[in-house]
């Protein structure tokens, strides 16, 4: 019985040595692993998507390979609701290999721009990035981080000024309304704005259209002119009512935005 017991003892010791050596090798490999992230790049595509590209630099100078690298990004709105999710997978990064992984996330702006708060107000979106991989064949490792992405509204501070009335002729008058906004978005805003001037009884008093092409971080300021027949719109009728504004751009449609006046 002594020989089998001794053999069992020797086998146990050898396996312990293997386990310790494995951990030491894995730890050294992990120390020699360099993972870095480049600056995220944001760009707007023509099909209404905001593209977010982030390069990851992985320099595996350790002796262990990296398997099943999976980078996942989840964009959430200010209330924590999920807006967009994207994943990038790399099946194998061999030891000694220097790799750059491009992680692309598309953010559907149509979903965001259907909400008034993102169309007219800036917000901080949250991006959670998680990178998971199997290290040294047996050890699943996960690195996660959060950062905020400042969402810039395309019609930030959209306001109508005080309407003014002027007589054109005996039958028609002109109502001029100054309009202004700032484009805080990461893209140029090009499109048109159709505005209905309605009285307090919901009747359409006049219609005006403005075409705009506002570059990023620029201010738009113009006047909307409503030509109205004098029998339907007099200065007294301008004391109460509202504007219905319809936005139409290559990226999104929105409306009506109701702005009361008077």
């Amino acid at each position: 019985m002594n020989v089998p017991i001794r053999m069992l003892g020797i086998a146990t010791v050898i396996l312990w040595v293997f386990l310790a050596a494995y951990i030491a090798v894995a730890a050294y490999s992990f120390k020699d692993l360099n993972i870095g992230a480049g600056e995220p790049v944001f760009a707007a595509s023509t099909n209404g998507e905001l593209l977010f590209a982030m390069p990851f630099y992985i320099d595996n100078r350790g002796v262990c390979s990296l398997k099943d690298l999976n980078i996942t990004t989840v964009f959430s709105d200010t209330e924590g609701a999920k807006i967009s999710t994207a994943s990038t997978s790399v099946p194998l990064i061999l030891h000694g290999q220097n790799t750059t992984v491009f992680h692309n996330v598309s953010l559907n702006m149509k979903d965001l721009l259907n909400k008034e708060e993102y169309l007219f107000g800036d917000a901080d979106l949250t991006a959670s990035i998680t990178a998971g991989l199997t290290f040294a064949e047996l050890l699943p490792v996960e690195i996660s981080t959060n950062f905020t992405y400042p969402w810039g509204a395309p019609f930030y501070g959209f306001t109508f000024g005080q309407p003014s009335f002027r007589l054109i002729n005996a039958t028609h008058g002109s109502i001029i309304v100054p309009v202004s906004f700032e484009n805080h978005a990461a893209f140029n805003v090009t499109g048109s704005m159709n505005t209905e001037l309605r009285g307090s009884d919901d009747s359409v008093l006049g219609v005006a259209q403005a075409v705009f092409d506002v570059p990023q971080q620029s201010v738009y300021a113009d006047d909307l002119e409503f030509i109205v027949p004098l029998d339907s719109a007099t200065p007294t009728e301008l004391r109460g009512g509202y504007f219905n504004v319809y936005f139409s751009t290559s990226l999104f449609e929105y409306g009506p935005l109701v702005i009361p006046y008077g």
């Binding site: 146990t12 396996l15 386990l19 290290f135 050890l139 490792v141 996960e142 690195i143 996660s144 981080t145």
Partner: peptide, 24 residues
């Protein structure tokens, strides 16, 4: 950054070896 390393496999192997030691 948060780093999480799942050592379940390592612990499982170590516990098995410990059980082997106990048996011995």
């Amino acid at each position: 950054f948060n780093l999480t390393i799942n050592l379940t496999m390592f612990y499982a192997f170590a516990v098995v070896l410990s059980l082997l030691g106990l048996a011995t």
